[in-house]
Amino acid sequence: MSSRARLSEDEITAALAGLPRWTREGDSIVRSAVAPDFPAAIRAVVAVAEQAEALDHHPDIDIRWRSLRFVLSTHSAGGLTGLDLTLAARIDEALRAESADA
């Protein structure tokens, strides 16, 4: 299966079981986190930006002081794809590296 192919509902449900901090909102998955301070939040966003560039798949990111919100969806596929799940896992890693948690 292509990483850009739209996932079935069963595939999304199974994948989210392995990404417990992510929730479904329509055709997107969403995660919020709070970093220890503003510089840590920015470092996390920079790490996510590097991963997004490597995958050529970019999240919507909202930064409010130490609070971060990430939204993932593959607009060209009209929903969620393997790229969203891969990037979600990489976002989790970047947040852990900066001690950011929900």
Score class of each variant (00 low, 15 high):
residue 4 R to N: 14
residue 5 A to F: 05
residue 6 R to C: 03
residue 10 D to K: 07
residue 10 D to P: 04
residue 14 A to H: 05
residue 19 L to E: 02
residue 19 L to G: 05
residue 20 P to W: 07
residue 21 R to C: 08
residue 23 T to K: 10
residue 24 R to Y: 09
residue 24 R to C: 11
residue 25 E to K: 15
residue 26 G to I: 12
residue 26 G to Y: 10
residue 26 G to L: 10
residue 31 R to S: 05
residue 32 S to A: 14
residue 33 A to G: 11
residue 33 A to N: 05
residue 34 V to T: 13
residue 35 A to C: 13
residue 36 P to Q: 09
residue 38 F to V: 11
residue 41 A to S: 12
residue 42 I to D: 10
residue 45 V to Y: 05
residue 46 V to C: 06
residue 51 Q to W: 07
residue 51 Q to I: 07
residue 52 A to N: 09
residue 52 A to H: 03
residue 53 E to W: 00
residue 55 L to Y: 10
residue 56 D to Q: 06
residue 62 D to I: 09
residue 64 R to Q: 09
residue 65 W to F: 13
residue 66 R to C: 14
residue 68 L to K: 04
residue 69 R to A: 11
residue 70 F to D: 09
residue 72 L to D: 01
residue 72 L to S: 05
residue 73 S to Q: 11
residue 73 S to L: 07
residue 73 S to W: 10
residue 75 H to P: 01
residue 78 G to I: 07
residue 78 G to R: 04
residue 79 G to A: 04
residue 81 T to C: 04
residue 82 G to M: 02
residue 83 L to T: 02
residue 84 D to G: 04
residue 86 T to C: 12
residue 87 L to I: 00
residue 87 L to R: 06
residue 87 L to K: 14
residue 91 I to H: 01
residue 92 D to W: 13
residue 92 D to M: 07
residue 92 D to F: 15
residue 93 E to W: 02
residue 95 L to E: 12
residue 96 R to P: 01
residue 98 E to F: 00
residue 99 S to W: 08
residue 99 S to H: 15
residue 100 A to D: 01
residue 101 D to V: 14
residue 102 A to P: 12
residue 102 A to I: 12
residue 102 A to F: 14
residue 102 A to Y: 14
